[in-house]
């Protein structure tokens, strides 16, 4: 496939450049720690049934006598109102958080990036139409659109992911479109057009490689943002539904009990905090690496 070949070819010098930057990146301890933490999280998600002391608790709870117990040797994070081990549920929650984050961001990218690249490169009426639509979606205060969509589609985890994708894709479109507009004025694109290169090849081999950097940065930070959004939606009752071990949902249910059972709110919250934090740190690090290269200095 000729387009793919061309695209990969333009990546070669980029890869060399990236290797140089990776050397610089690796020297930063904070980044390394964050990457390790993400790795641990992925392992937890995969091996949750094996690591959790009470794997069945991610759904069922049939120990009413053990309800609302403080952290102990047996129940590391204590138990909830149905006697379920919070530690096991937090571990299982990793699955939900990581998978929804990846799915949502990937879907938003798949929708948003091509639209933005086309709008920016082709310009004209296509650009106007696409950007107006994008503007409308972007006019909603962040999160509110997701809340509204999730509420109207009906509360469920699937709908929450759909809502997030619908609310999120315009950001990528706008980002890429802005980049594409400035790239399209550059010499190498102009000369490609002047010798009659087809639009699709221009977009693939010229525009996309030069505009992807900010999008990659944004996407890596958005992984954290989506985890936070899903947690917020679940907190409001719009995302994961009981008995799923979603961290946001756990915090929501804990509200009735937490003044006397501090462990119930604390640990799921810490889980959210750590996962969002490491993705934000990684996103920041990627930005430090990619951005200076794309800027004219």
């Amino acid at each position: 496939m000729k387009q793919l070949d061309a695209f990969l070819f333009t990546l070669k010098p980029r890869i060399r450049e990236t290797r140089q930057s990776l050397y610089f990146y690796n020297r930063n301890r904070l980044q390394k720690i964050s990457l390790i933490v993400v790795g641990i999280m992925v392992l937890i998600a995969i091996f949750a049934p094996i690591i959790s002391p009470f794997p069945e608790h991610f759904r069922l709870g049939n120990n009413p006598s053990d309800k609302l117990l403080p952290p102990s040797g047996q129940y590391l994070f204590g138990t909830d109102e149905l006697g379920r081990d919070i530690f096991s549920r937090v571990l299982y929650g990793t699955r939900i958080s990581l998978s929804t984050a990846v799915i949502a961001v990937a879907a938003a990218l798949i929708v948003g990036v091509p639209l933005g690249a086309i709008a920016g490169t082709v310009g004209g009426l296509t650009d106007e139409i696409i950007m107006r639509i994008t503007d409308v979606f972007l006019s909603f205060p962040p999160l509110l659109l997701a809340i509204a969509i999730a509420a109207f589609l009906g509360p469920s985890l699937k709908n929450a992911i759909l809502a997030i994708v619908i609310a999120w894709w315009p950001w990528y479109t706008r980002l890429i479109r802005g980049q594409a507009v400035s790239v399209r004025e550059r010499q190498f694109v102009r000369s490609a057009r002047s010798i009659g290169t087809p639009m699709s090849k221009i977009i693939f081999s010229h525009v996309l490689p030069n505009t992807m950097a900010p999008v990659i940065v944004q996407a890596s930070m958005d992984l954290g943002g989506v985890i936070l959004t899903i947690a917020s939606l679940s907190f409001l009752g719009l995302g994961a539904q009981a008995p799923m071990p979603d961290w946001g949902l756990m915090i929501s249910t804990s509200r009735t009990y937490f003044l006397n059972a501090w462990w119930y709110s604390t640990f799921p919250g810490i889980a959210i905090f750590i996962s969002v934090l490491v993705f934000n740190i990684i996103g920041d690090g990627i930005r430090e690496v990619l951005d200076p290269k794309t800027r004219k200095f």
């Binding site: 915090i251 509200r255 919250g269 959210i272």
Partner: peptide, 13 residues
Amino acid sequence: SLPTFWIGLILQL
């Protein structure tokens, strides 16, 4: 990175 609703609860605590 802090979930707002969570920090509210913790502060109350």
